[in-house]
Simulated scan of single mutants.
Amino acid sequence: MFHPLRVSEVERLTDDAVAVTFAVPPELRETFRHIPGQHVALRRSVGGQEIRRTYSICAPAVPDGADPVLRVGIRLVEGGEFSTYAFKELAVGDTVEVMEPTGRFVLKPRAGRFAAVVGGSGITPVLSIAASLLAYEPDARFCLVRSDRTVASTMFLEEVADLKNRYPDRFQLVTVVSREEQQSGLPSGRLDQERLTGLLPALLPVTGIDGWFLCGPLGLVTGAERALRGLGVARARIHQEIFHVDDVPAGVLSAAATAKERAPSRSTLTATLDGRSGNWPVQEGDSLLETVLRSRADAPYACKGGVCGTCRAFLVSGEVRMDRNFALEPEETEAGYVLACQSHPATAEVELDFDR
């Protein structure tokens, strides 16, 4: 569900990024109380067309009873309708429709040792995770390995430096820039699988980390996961969130083409959403999300690109083929969850449950 919230602050972070803070009224205090790492979808209409984009909450969580801080980081994307609007036009006092916090790339503060590898704006949810963990759990440690193009393009420099100053014994920071030389620290260059395989064991006991959090562009996240798996880290301890996908991998394209060939000539979708069920014919080429949206405008979605996971649904019966999936963990797909925005029917009848 979306709620109209007033913008209380717009802070310029870099030449191409801003942090936007929303005022949360008392009656929505519990609605917008987030778990560190969650995101929200923002919505606006332009020329009668609805635009939704997902942005991670960068503020730390607050104790029960305290007013939640709803602050998101937005990086300007070339040709991006919402990011351009947020960066160039959005001002204090404006109202934006905001969906309730969601997402499973989260860490509730607990004792242990944790680490993250992030690239670019991938710092946004990890900032909330690290700040909350260190503030509320004295027996926790956190190592942040971050990669950016240049120092000037690095988001939340001051916030990360503040964590280092406040928790010098429990917060470890390693920074790498790919497009300029640094006077100190690691040599410039991309953090790919080979480099991370050599770097991470020199920083910390890789297999002794209780949770790894990987966030950023697809290439960095994929390389980091492969490096960690090669170093013996269990899959269950690796958590991922993709922020940007340049191209659909060739394997995904071929799988999508095969799925289209196998698609039934006619199919019917039954879906349960907010306790109400309905069934509709699936038009040729439509995803299951598009089928639901024709009759239920309240169906959950944000990116429609298989990245955010907002449209996750449980496959009750039938079979589907997903064009791509950059949001669900392997254990989620094994349990029967699919992304409705990327799913097409592979049987004559399919049933989804968005409420599970």
Rank of each mutant, 00 (worst) to 15 (best):
A130M: 11
A130L: 12
A130C: 12
A130I: 05
S132V: 11
A135C: 03
P138M: 01
A140K: 01
A140Q: 01
R141Y: 01
F142P: 03
C143R: 14
V145Y: 09
S147D: 07
S147T: 10
V151W: 13
A152F: 01
S153C: 01
S153Y: 02
S153N: 09
T154M: 15
M155N: 03
E159P: 03
E159W: 01
A161G: 04
D162V: 03
K164N: 14
K164A: 15
N165C: 11
N165W: 13
P168G: 14
P168D: 13
P168M: 10
F171Q: 06
Q172D: 15
L173F: 11
L173A: 06
L173C: 10
V177K: 01
S178E: 13
R179M: 01
E181Y: 09
S184N: 10
P187L: 05
P187G: 00
S188K: 04
D192M: 07
Q193T: 08
Q193P: 06
Q193A: 08
R195T: 11
G198D: 10
L200S: 04
P201F: 00
L204P: 09
V206P: 00
V206A: 01
G211Y: 06
W212C: 04
G216M: 09
L218C: 04
L220F: 01
G223A: 14
A224R: 05
R229E: 03
G230H: 10
L231E: 04
G232Y: 12
G232H: 14
A234P: 00
R235A: 14
A236M: 08
F243G: 02
H244Q: 14
V248H: 05
G251A: 12
A255T: 04
A256L: 10
A257Q: 15
T258K: 04
A259M: 07
K260P: 04
E261F: 09
R262Q: 10
A263Y: 00
